Amino acid sequence: MNIAMWSGPRNLSTALMYAFAARGDCAVWDEPFYAAYLARTGLAHPMRDEIIAAGETDPAQVAAACVAPTSSDKPLFYQKHMCQHMIADMPRDWIEDVTNVFLIRHPARVMASFASKYEAAELSDIGFVQQAELFDRLSETSKNIPIVIDSNDIRKNPEAVLRLLCDRLNIVFMQSMLGWPTGPKPYDGVWAPVWYHAVHRSSGFAGQEGPLPHLQGDFARTAEAAMPYYERLRAHALTRPS
Rank of each mutant, 00 (worst) to 15 (best):
N2Y: 00
W6N: 07
G8T: 04
A19I: 05
G24H: 05
D25G: 12
V28H: 02
D30N: 11
E31Y: 01
F33R: 04
F33V: 05
Y34E: 00
A39P: 04
L43N: 09
M47W: 02
R48Q: 12
I51W: 02
I52H: 05
A53K: 10
A54Q: 03
A54Y: 01
G55V: 11
D58W: 01
A65C: 08
A65K: 12
Q79L: 14
Q84S: 13
M86G: 03
I87C: 10
M90R: 06
P91H: 07
I95K: 03
E96G: 04
V98T: 14
T99G: 08
I104M: 13
P107M: 10
R109A: 13
E119V: 10
E119I: 05
E122R: 14
E122Q: 13
E122C: 08
F128G: 06
A132I: 07
D136L: 06
D136M: 07
D136P: 02
R137H: 08
S139Q: 12
T141C: 02
S142Y: 00
K143P: 03
K143S: 14
N144F: 01
N144Q: 12
P146D: 03
I147F: 01
N152P: 01
I154A: 02
N157R: 01
A160H: 11
V161H: 02
V161I: 13
L164H: 06
V172K: 15
Q175D: 15
L178W: 11
G179N: 15
K185S: 14
K185T: 11
A192G: 08
V194D: 09
W195F: 08
H200Y: 00
S203F: 04
G204Y: 10
A206Q: 14
G210R: 10
G210H: 09
P211M: 06
L215P: 06
Q216T: 15
D218L: 06
R221T: 10
A225L: 11
A226E: 10
M227V: 13
R232D: 15
A237H: 10
T239I: 04
R240V: 11
